[in-house]
Design a protein around this nucleic acid. Sequence first.
DNA 1: CCAAATTTGATGTACGTAAATCAAAAAATC
DNA 2: GATTTTTTGATTTACGTACATCAAATTTGG
Lengths: 340, 340
Amino acid sequence: MRPTVHDIAAAAGVSLATVDRVLNQRPGVRHVTREKVETAIRELGYIRDVAAANLAKGRTYPLVFILPASDNSFMHGLNAEIRQAVLRSPAERTDIRTIEVPAFDPAALVSVLEELSREKPCGIAMVATDAPEVRAAVDKLVRERFPIVTLVSDLTGSLRHHYAGVDNIAAGRTAARLLGRFLGPRKGEIAVLAGSMLVRDHRERLEGFAAVMAAEFPHLAILPVLEGRDDPEVAHRLVADALGNAGIIGVYSLGAGNRGLIRALKEKTVDRTLTVIAHELTAHTRAALVDNTIDAILNQDAGHEVRSAIRVLKAKADGLAVIEAQERIRLDIFLKDNLP
Amino acid sequence: MRPTVHDIAAAAGVSLATVDRVLNQRPGVRHVTREKVETAIRELGYIRDVAAANLAKGRTYPLVFILPASDNSFMHGLNAEIRQAVLRSPAERTDIRTIEVPAFDPAALVSVLEELSREKPCGIAMVATDAPEVRAAVDKLVRERFPIVTLVSDLTGSLRHHYAGVDNIAAGRTAARLLGRFLGPRKGEIAVLAGSMLVRDHRERLEGFAAVMAAEFPHLAILPVLEGRDDPEVAHRLVADALGNAGIIGVYSLGAGNRGLIRALKEKTVDRTLTVIAHELTAHTRAALVDNTIDAILNQDAGHEVRSAIRVLKAKADGLAVIEAQERIRLDIFLKDNLP
DNA sequence: CCAAATTTGATGTACGTAAATCAAAAAATC
DNA sequence: GATTTTTTGATTTACGTACATCAAATTTGG
């Protein structure tokens, strides 16, 4: 049987009350006594029964998710997954609140973070906008002992405890290799459609993509990035224009808002084979993959990201270890054959 | 606040003891009373606090993993993941035992299953050998209310509650498309290295592979399957021999024991580019991917499979729902750019 | 050495559920 | 209608931990 507080008390030769004081860092314990107890804990290999403790405390985990108010399929999916998590709240003892902030607006994000400092949630998951003031606000919260995980888009160089999202540089590199290998020895130009170069994840994907392209597929030339602002209409216009260029043989869409891209691809008048790689599996990209308009989809599983963020925040709040391998968000590669 | 048993008792106008009898299906409750209680449960939306119940019951989950005694990297990895799960046992209230049975031996597997029927574990995870007598033994256990999940290799047509493994037909199809697309318009022959055609997962991978090859890449001819018995030495000899055929331009290794394959590939005398796709990420295949001996690796995450099997078995034992999306085991596709 | 302050012990209640016991009430049987 | 059987209620203890209270013991300061 695993040891209980009673065993610790007996082993350390103190009372239950004292063990409790040590375990819950309450005052009124002499240094030597505290050490006796801590030794007993270590020697017996005592682990607190979190379930029993939560029951006694009537504990819930108030968590806050901060998301950008972006109107694209991916964010809608992320929102839906958070709602699913809310439905599971009673069983998981979580109490989840979502805050939407204007996208790409560091100041707004910072002010939300500052408010949270007063509200005292036991964990914060946020889609980070990459700016120095955001980094400073996050670091401040971490120093005040708030568990913080970044979601989807990381905040490198900050003190955040964990990042629940894919490695975007690796994603870009993977896209480049797939595209390069699919195209074979053909020479030509590659169009890149992004949302905005102001977002870190898009910048990183492009960085990885360009690096592998240059190093391993020098016969393929990357055209200037089209910034579609994750908006289907804008994307449609940009891609339709670009396809006037007969030299294009491949497309990499690294952002959201692929509806416009797909429409432009289907409308193309000149009949030629384009190899297309896009990000994020949605109803639209899925259909396009099935009908061969798109050749591969790179995806991050929003459900996994949300569940992982919650697990990590709870663990951090309790000071417990996380299973690293379980919390690694993988880059899913979908061909038409392995769709879920 | 979520309702408790006390609220149910009050709402149904019965005593706590009666509610308990209903909840734990103990005898001695009239039909009408039982219905009153069940109505109250439904109307208040009562959900049993599993943590509190487990605490009161002093419950642990005795689980059994049945694995084939195969000496290859994948099975070693699976074993290691089970040992990790054992380390987490105190926190997860599990009590995990592993049983090794001779590989490809339905009779041995059946006799182990029959023994388990007496031992009464609260759940069984097994790497299934695909045979009618195994199917019958599994169905019998399921009818006796044992939760059973198949691991890595499924038992289609049986009553097992869940399969914790990848879709092997989809895996084979994916391999075919990757190989076909990487090779482009080149004509040639494809060597296929399998472990044994007696194992269901290998048969299924080949089936998916052959289907896509025939339908979409008819200019590539699949050579007769090499059965390497998942043994590096045998695989080495078979592949080395096969590579004497100058028409081979691609290799699909759908089984375990890739060390021999890799050695044969590196030794090849004629200098030509082979496109190679293999299964299972191990130290060897990983190195081969990095040095370009292998072009892509298809993988199933053994850690995810083990954790998923445990979650599902616990949920089934408690009669709870599982998060389907979370328990879906994906086919990982690794290029050298997205290695973990 | 005494008083004050600090540290420790003993004890009880609570969390939500399980499980057991025994008495009381209701229903079924003859 | 009395007896047996079945059903229900009331109550208690337990699981492992948290937390509060009060008394007792120990240490510290003067």
